[in-house]
Nucleic acid binder design. Structure first.
Lengths: 212, 212
DNA sequence: GTTCATCTTGACACCCTGTAAAGTTGCATT
DNA sequence: AATGCAACTTTACAGGGTGTCAAGATGAAC
């Protein structure tokens, strides 16, 4: 083999090839991955027991590559409710298109493989943890509407981030990135927030003066 | 063949078998369908050109069987905004679990087959038409929030009905049917509606009296 | 130079799709 | 009663996918 060690050890090379195949929208077959990695089909099996295992690894690898940690930073930095929810909407608009294919593969293979089912549940629970933290911050600022508990608001926010929801609006119904982001942010605010104390006072004053 | 005409002609029999296989969560293979229909594998090809064609037909058949027309009636009958949105939430809670598997099959095969892509887009557009009508009624009642056009509200409502959103909340995060229905209805109301004129007046009166 | 992990080639069993050909069966028409 | 036809059967095949197995090549480290 002439170019075996071109891009780092075998495993990493295969992982890269797998994510490339998935991101390209091609079906994830062992032959395709092997070909793209410049390696025999059997070599893939030396590193990954089967296709589901490869898919799981590729999903994790993609999460690293895409820098989930960095992408979340604007949300962490937000210091008020409106900014936080807008940042989340932006995050969804940016991140969903990138993970779309990977999520599709994982969801498709999930039925047959316990490891993939676990990996999926892991993903969902991680997302829920993050969105519950958001809900807790909203509550801490006194902005979470009394109709919602932190748990309910967190779960709801997580579900609003589902790839299919994004896909239907942006891919199937032709929404622009901006329209998606704006509308989702608006829906988040209107659903979860009560007016801030400051706004409430101003509003009240206006109503009183206009009705006297 | 002893029992050939047991449940009506071959085609209908095969369709029934296909929907049974899908609803059972088994992978949709031609052999499985044939076996369940009590027919040779080749007979399936006499009625359906290939697997995607069978999947499309099964999806349509299921829509008929489930009585989509009847299920939508409570929404048509609603005479105010709150009732309409609650009815929609109820509809989603009831209907999504039933079409879950079919939608999964169609979405999975969609990538490879143009006919399935079209069938999917058809479905999305039909849903959008229905939810736009809902949004138009809200606007007609003077209840649609000025932040939303009929088009945007309709699309958003359609996307909120995505199977994956339901699946994440109910299947992955363990929400009850009731909790799903209530929370979604609340989110719909809070996102799309402005208070009714009557409520607005009462509210205003209360504010004035409490601040004088 | 030997050892060892890593990779290769080649072969296999199994399952699935879709195509093809030739034969059966039973009903409807004449 | 004979014929014709549509629906179905059995059998076979090519092609592609997964996963397993065995035997050989290769190169770096010791």
């Amino acid at each position: 083999m002439s170019s075996r060690n071109r891009t780092g050890g075998g495993r990493a090379r295969i992982l890269e090839a797998a994510t490339a195949v998935i991101l390209n929208g091609e079906p994830l077959t062992m032959s395709a991955v092997a070909a793209r990695a410049g390696v025999s089909r059997q070599a893939v099996y030396l590193h990954f027991a089967n296709r589901p295992a490869l898919a799981v690894a590729a999903a994790r690898y993609t999460d690293e590559q895409l820098g989930l940690a960095d992408a979340v930073r604007p949300m962490e930095a937000a210091s008020d409710a409106e900014t936080l929810l807008s940042a989340y909407a932006e995050f969804l608009a940016d991140y969903n298109p990138r993970i779309r294919n990977i999520v599709g593969v994982v969801k498709a293979l999930r039925r047959d493989d316990p490891a993939l089912r676990d990996a999926w549940l892991d993903r969902v629970r991680n997302r829920r943890r993050a969105t519950r933290r958001m809900a807790r911050r909203l509550a801490g600022w006194g902005r979470l509407a009394p109709e919602f508990t932190v748990a309910t608001a967190g779960d709801w926010l997580a579900a609003q981030g589902s790839v299919e929801l994004w896909e239907e609006l942006v891919v199937d119904l032709g929404w622009s990135r901006q329209r998606f982001s704006d509308t989702m942010a608006e829906a988040f605010r209107r659903t979860l927030l009560v007016p801030s104390a400051a706004l409430r006072d101003a509003d009240q004053a206006a109503r009183n003066s206009s009705s006297t």
